[in-house]
Design a protein around this nucleic acid. Structure first.
Lengths: 261, 261
DNA sequence: CGTTAGATGTCGGTT
DNA sequence: AACCGACGTCTAACG
């Protein structure tokens, strides 16, 4: 672990140059800088942040993050793929993170640096997550009675002219039934999404009585209005109740995820 | 600045307890922990992350972030509003970040801690950004000829039955014209959004010939199909060319944002 | 507080 | 590379 406290511009430059080289060579490594700095961004938009103290994170994959004392999202950033460059301009240390496509640049001008830290962080593990929409889709595919009795699913995630729909099959009376699944509250947007899939099917097959069902733990009032207007249906389903079934389907890294204290 | 290297569980517990108290009292403060740890999450979904080294960030507003050596997004997190709690369980230090609504918990079990750091970061500045959709909307409101010659905008961001639309006015021939503005490529979703606004207006006013135009730097092929099908229009507009005008409208913190090296 | 829509969204999958 | 949709999205604005 490398650590420098209150370095001047020259010292910090040396530190950064060394660590940036190390970053490029070693994957599991992380550079943290706490500093009083000003930040400019130019790319898809443009921004300016006047002097203040922030935490900067530089990752070996070219990720750059600037965090303040509040909020979950960084105030400035660069996604993976950026290249870092450090130099001294007018006695001030300047760090740039450049991303070629789309062409974007974040430029940090340092006024005072509290601390620079570089640490190796080795991590071979991948996050395993249960409860995504894909899990719910699979659950409904395997337990179609949760959609409605007699539902026979045919396909999952098929490309249609206007996008993808989650589930596609036939109801008890042989009518085509398109299902849109949402893990959270479904709003107008989601209702519209279902309509987008059903509309062309009905146009194609005017006598077929194509049905569309939106399944979510909650469907917002305006979404219901839209569904009604277009002859679509919805069903509220509490995933909490069905999640245990999902977990039985796909064990999370062989480790149960029961309630923990 | 507080710093502890390679603390044992008891030392780290003391450090964390002290710093968590300080966090609650002092707004501009940040705690960083680099550690080998396992992480469980339970809430809207559930996740499990096996032992590995990560960087943890604890912010005074109750934000919690867990970063690995790659990616811009934290592998686990808690948005502002969480409360932290540290204790020792079975000789292992455990940190929890609890969020009441929705009820979610992130639980970190430490196996080895490389370093704990707590720093004050004072930052009174706010980010000023140019190039948001709102900026573009304002630009078109003030320069309606960019939409089309003869366009007279009436309102911005009005609530309609089915949501908000960006601009609303009359074209050269007195027909109602609804404009949807996008800062990036417009896809099917955005085309559908425009249709959502125009559809009820046309139903309300069948003879009015209500027009809808989607304005974006680029409109995807499928989006064009949908627009054509519904008698809607689009116009591709390069914001790069018009951004200078936006900046003239709203100076970014009184500081020009010209191209910088 | 719920609802809505934007975001420099980021990210992963598929054509 | 472009396109598309999910995300534990987060976040601000508004009723």
């Amino acid at each position: 672990m490398q650590l420098v406290r209150d370095p001047d511009a020259a010292t910090a430059l040396t530190f950064l140059r060394e660590e940036l080289t190390a970053l490029r060579e070693e994957k599991g490594r992380l550079v943290q800088v706490v500093a009083d700095c000003a930040i400019q961004y130019q790319g898809r938009a443009r921004s300016m942040l006047h002097r203040g103290e922030r935490l900067l994170l530089l990752k070996p994959d070219g990720t750059f993050l600037v965090h303040t004392a509040t909020k979950a999202k960084p105030v400035n950033w660069q996604p993976p793929g950026a290249t870092f460059h450090a130099e001294v301009e007018d006695d001030l240390l300047v760090l740039t993170a450049y991303r070629p496509k789309p062409e974007e640049i974040v430029k940090v001008t340092f006024h005072a640096i509290s601390v620079c830290i570089a640490v190796p962080i080795r991590d071979a593990e991948e996050l395993s997550l249960v409860g995504s929409e894909d899990d719910l889709q699979e659950l409904l595919f395997r337990h179609p009675e949760l959609v409605e009795p007699g539902f026979v699913p045919r396909r999952r995630e098929r490309d249609s002219k206007r996008g993808f729909y989650d589930l596609d099959g036939d109801d008890a009376e042989g009518r085509r039934l398109v299902v849109e699944v949402k893990r959270g509250t479904a709003g107008v947007k989601e209702a519209q999404q279902l309509w987008r899939y059903v509309e062309p099917l009905r146009a194609q097959n005017p006598d077929g009585g194509v049905r569309g069902v939106l399944i979510a733990p909650r469907v917002a009032p305006k979404a219901r209005d839209l569904l009604r207007d277009h002859g679509l249906e919805w069903k509220e389903l509490d995933w909490e109740e069905v999640l245990p079934k999902v977990e039985r389907l796909r064990r999370v890294g062989q480790v149960g995820l029961g309630t923990f204290s």
